Amino acid sequence: TYYTVKSGDTANKIAAQYGVSVANLRSWNGISGDLIFVGQKLIVKKG
């Protein structure tokens, strides 16, 4: 599943929404920190 980042989103918020850990969200998308951008497409695997 892909999720498009919206204004006000955070890695924590997206992870919680899908029931996954922030560490997994980072791993699936090659993100090292919490910096995400509006319009960015993230791979999300439901927990």
Rank of each mutant, 00 (worst) to 15 (best):
T1L: 13
L42D: 00
K46V: 13
Y3L: 03
L42Q: 00
D34S: 09
I43R: 07
S7D: 14
T4K: 06
N12H: 14
G19H: 09
K6Y: 03
V5K: 00
V20T: 08
G30S: 11
Y2V: 10
V44R: 00
D34Y: 08
T4L: 08
V22F: 05
F37R: 09
I43G: 01
G33Y: 06
Y2D: 04
D9Q: 01
V38S: 06
I36D: 02
L42C: 04
G8Q: 06
Q40P: 01
L25P: 00
T4W: 10
K6N: 06
G8E: 06
S32W: 10
T10L: 03
L25Q: 00
G8C: 04
S7Y: 14
I43C: 11
G30P: 06
V38G: 03
K6V: 11
K41P: 05
Y3M: 04
A15P: 00
T1K: 10
Y3N: 01
G8N: 06
A15H: 02
K13D: 11
L35Y: 13
N24K: 10
V44G: 01
I43L: 14
T10P: 02
V22W: 07
K45C: 10
K45A: 13
Y18L: 11
A23L: 08
V20H: 02
S27W: 10
K41D: 06
G30H: 11
V22K: 05
L25C: 04
K46Q: 14
V44K: 00
W28S: 02
K41H: 10
I36G: 02
D9M: 02
Q17L: 14
G30T: 08
Y3F: 03
A11G: 04
A11N: 03
K6M: 10
K13Q: 11
N24S: 11
K13L: 11
I14G: 00
K46N: 12
V44Q: 00
K45P: 06
D34H: 08
L42N: 00
G8I: 02
R26N: 10
D9S: 01
S27N: 12
T1W: 14
T10S: 08
S32Q: 14
S21D: 09
D34K: 07
V22T: 07
Y2I: 11
I31L: 15
F37C: 11
K13P: 01
W28D: 04
S7E: 15
Q40G: 03
G39T: 04
N24A: 12
A16C: 13
G47C: 09
K13N: 10
A15K: 01
K45M: 12
G30R: 09
Q17W: 12
T1R: 11
V22N: 03
V20F: 04
G19T: 04
N29V: 02
V44C: 03
V20I: 15
S7R: 11
L35M: 13
S7A: 14
L25D: 01
G8L: 05
G33E: 10
I43Q: 08
K13M: 13
K41L: 14
L42Y: 01
N12M: 14
S7G: 09
L42R: 00
K45D: 10
G19N: 10
S7C: 14
W28I: 03
V5E: 01
W28M: 06
A16S: 11
T4C: 11
K13G: 13
S32Y: 11
K13S: 15
I36S: 02
L25R: 00
G39P: 00
A15E: 02
